[in-house]
Write a protein that binds this DNA or RNA. Structure first.
Lengths: 202, 202
DNA sequence: GCAAATTAATGATTTATTCAAG
DNA sequence: CTTGAATAAATCATTAATTTGC
């Protein structure tokens, strides 16, 4: 909430909602007329003046661009992974004819922890087992979902790269995986998000 | 509990608790690696596979959004009702010059909507009132904002030219301005549809 | 109390939209 | 302009909660 004698505008949820809807509708750089109309309209929902609207659109536009740029760089980083996938997809005879694809690496704000040291600092110590035999099950079910379309799941081999917030305890390839590590389930990831954002901003 | 030969996954309370905790902690769209790790982990508490985790996050995210939207929409509509009264209660003695503004097919360089059909599909139909007497205040704030760049201000005199989608509502010479236009307050297409669905289902 | 009927939640699929690369 | 990749929205389908009449 907004402090009583705040020196700056605190938009109400309604105001934000309307502004965002207008932005989506194509109003990116309203002129003075539009700004005033918007201001008049929004003043019903709370204290507001023209410059607030002006700044809002300026900032919002800039930050959308920023988001886009970030997404673009992420996309570039993704290229490697995709090449990786295509490589596996073209393999002659994998255990299954088709591998499934179903999701992407998370957006930057969810990743954020870039190394073990940072993770350790915040006391995040996920330690999970990955049962290779289960991967096949998933692949099969995924195959159904997307009708035989390509793959994913393969980046499991590089979890520490694509998903720095999680650690995977390497499972020995011989014998059934011991389940004891399951007890180390994520106790709390309470400040995971903040840390991730913080790191990501840097 | 879950029927024996159930066709769908029935999460245990522990699984749900953990999933929700992760969601709150910032995991909104886990990638394949994370999904597998989560799956492996949750499998300790009961039968589960990757697609269940995948779907759970998809659904949970969507339904949280939906909940939020619904809440805001309700609030908005409530306040719009209040605005209806507020507006007419505060009407000075007519006749005033009022302008109605239709959110435009914006100029090409700011377009987010690619054609009229798309715009129509999105239900873009803002209709606002503008009290001309308020424009003076704006000019002052705008001047300050733009630090002497007066170009911004001049198009106030020709709103219908600079923004072809501004209409002037002829104020009836006999009686008050038409009241019904306020009902056309900004309502997004998604909101409408959502409400329709809600009504149909209920 | 207790099922049949009804409603609400939610898991699973399908469809539409968005963005950018070719 | 078309297409691929990814996501979100909408929808379908089943399970859980609940209401209702006995």
């Amino acid at each position: 909430m907004c402090p009583a004698g705040s020196s700056r505008w605190c938009p109400t949820p309604e105001q934000v909602m309307i502004l965002e809807e207008m932005y989506r509708s194509g109003v990116k750089t309203p002129n003075a007329t539009q700004i005033q109309q918007i201001t008049s309209h929004l003043s019903f929902y709370g204290k507001i003046e023209g410059k607030n609207v002006f700044y809002w659109f300026q900032n919002h536009k800039a930050r959308e661009r920023q988001k886009l740029r970030r997404k673009l760089t992420k996309q570039l980083q993704l290229q490697q992974q995709q090449l990786f996938h295509h490589y596996f997809d073209s393999l002659p005879s994998p255990p299954f004819q088709h591998l499934s694809y179903y999701n992407s690496p998370p957006p930057p704000q969810q990743v954020g922890v870039h190394d073990a040291a940072a993770a350790a600092k915040q006391g995040i110590n996920y330690t999970w087992k990955l049962d290779v035999s289960e991967r096949m099950d998933v692949d099969k079910s995924m195959m159904k979902m997307y009708g035989g379309d390509l793959l994913m799941m393969v980046d499991l081999s590089t979890p520490s790269l694509s998903s720095p917030c999680f650690f995977t305890t390497a499972t020995a390839t011989t014998g059934p995986p011991p389940l004891k590590t399951l007890e180390l389930f994520p106790v709390t990831a309470s400040n995971l998000k903040e840390e991730c954002n913080k790191n990501n901003n840097g």
